[in-house]
Computed example of a mutant assay.
Amino acid sequence: MTADTAYHGEMGRQFALHATNSAYNAHTDRPAMLELAGDVSSLRVLDLGCGAGHYAAELLRMGAGQVVGVEGSETLLRAAQERLEDKAVLHRHDLEEPLSFLADQSFDLAVMALVYHHIDARGQLLAELRRVLRPGGTLLVSTTHPTGDWNYFGGSYFASERVELPFGDGFALNHWRMTLEQFLQELLGAGFALEKLTEPRATQEARLVDIRRYDKTHQQPHFLAVKLRRP
């Protein structure tokens, strides 16, 4: 993410804490994405927008051979380093820029969890992902649900615009809202093949964390997650 959209300073610290056990991040998006990942035994995994390292830690626990994390926020990268110690390779990098430090066809799996909708240069990023994934490799992407954004922000469902969502103590998350059509066309147009699409709902564990948000995810869509294949 850019310097403007990465979660720096106090916002980053609050997000790292929030993502550890929140109903939405820990008990809705993360379980869905890890289920889509399936068997990761011995795979080389790229975690783009790795945040505080929660996904990387789970992927390693599931048997991934190596995880390489990329994050634009120094605050979140420090949190990831504390969580992962020396178990993953971490890079600070602006995802608006090419992934020139990563070799061609060097990963089996790439994960972008709730990152894609923050990016302006999405076409460039998808082209880079196609480059660094081996043929037959897997790309997992989760994003805010287009219908959920429409319900929250109103206006035209077909709007493509940056919006802000209040977060934490006086902060705001800045991201693109887009239609389902736009989201899928960007991914398919970059040369990826869609294998599975899911609309995650909170797991039972979320009931103990936040029953209101648990109920909301079972009544209206919040996230969208897709599994794609690089031909």
Rank of each mutant, 00 (worst) to 15 (best):
D4G: 06
G9C: 08
M11D: 07
R13E: 14
R13A: 13
A19C: 00
Y24D: 12
T28H: 03
D29I: 01
P31V: 00
P31L: 05
L34A: 05
G38T: 03
D39K: 05
V40R: 05
V40Y: 01
R44T: 08
L48D: 04
L48T: 09
C50V: 11
G51R: 01
A52M: 03
G53Q: 12
G53R: 11
A57Y: 11
A57K: 07
L59Y: 04
L60G: 03
L60Y: 09
R61M: 13
M62H: 12
M62I: 04
V70C: 01
E74Y: 15
E74V: 15
L77H: 08
L77D: 09
R78K: 14
V89Q: 14
L90S: 05
R92L: 10
H93S: 07
H93D: 06
L95S: 08
L102E: 11
A103F: 10
D108T: 08
L109E: 04
M112E: 01
L114Q: 10
H117F: 14
D120F: 05
D120I: 11
Q124P: 10
Q124I: 03
L125C: 06
L126N: 04
G136F: 03
L139F: 00
L140V: 08
T144K: 14
D149N: 13
Y152A: 15
F153K: 02
G154Y: 05
G155T: 02
S156H: 14
F158W: 13
E161V: 11
R162T: 13
E164A: 07
L165K: 14
F171Q: 14
N174G: 13
W176Q: 11
R177L: 02
M178A: 15
L187F: 01
G189Q: 10
A190N: 02
A190K: 06
A190V: 00
E195F: 07
L197E: 06
E199W: 05
T203F: 02
Q204R: 09
E205I: 04
Y214N: 02
D215W: 10
H222F: 12
H222I: 09
A225W: 03
L228G: 01
R230C: 15
